[in-house]
Amino acid sequence: MSIIRTEHLSKSFGSLQVLKDINLSVEQGEVIVIIGPSGAGKSTFLRSLNELETITGGKIFIDEQLVEERKHGHVVFTLPPKEKAAYLLEMGMVFQRFNLFPHKTAAENVMLAPINVKNVTKEEARARAEALLTKVGLEDKFDEYPSKLSGGQQQRVAIARALAMEPKIMLFDEPTSALDPELVGDVLKVMQELAEDGMTMLVVSHEMGFAKGVADRVLFMCDGIIAEEGSPDEIFSNPQNPRTKQFLNVIL
């Protein structure tokens, strides 16, 4: 069963069509890495899935339930807000620039949404936050403010924060590209462990090591479409599309 599926998804900003026709089905437990040149629409695609952007056309299914369908910008179908919110909660998102809440400590960052969205008690949320922060290797940072943490530590808090809502799928938008090189490894390790635990993941990243080691599928996105897809081996060792070849030559 697919966790997320899109049909003919398109998105324009005014006259600029960024996503043209994206058809993707993400199966339970799958780890998909998306690569592609700057401006290809990778971020826009992830952001369309959890409604940080409104799509222009196409359908989005979550757990095989149609949640949104649009045509030429107009709504064809949309779930009632409450129901839709529940489906959107199945997605957690990690941003390139962490976006931690600077006025909250690490633990408070993780506790905020469970307490206010899921009505979890403070004690329960705290216990869960401590467990998650320990899992991402921050057992000694519960009560630090983000400004006192390194970029890699902040990103791991952000991962714990998203996990606290118990999503079925995690979306990562270039989670390591704002980090100093020596801090990238810690974050990738956490992501790898998450994948090993069976989490479904959709990751925009150019970390080839991670893609080769962890991904089930790699998508090459270019000019608003998925130009090529395949196993990491197929894409990295034997790309078919000339655009893929050209892109890999540049970044490898």
């Binding site: 409604e51 940080l52 919110a85 976006n99 931690l100 905020l112 949404a113 969205v117 809502m165």
Partner: peptide
Amino acid sequence: GQLEASKSLGLTYAQSMRLV
């Protein structure tokens, strides 16, 4: 990014304003 993070965590607009 603060509002986007709040939204991605399921907070409503009013909650995001008040809490974040």
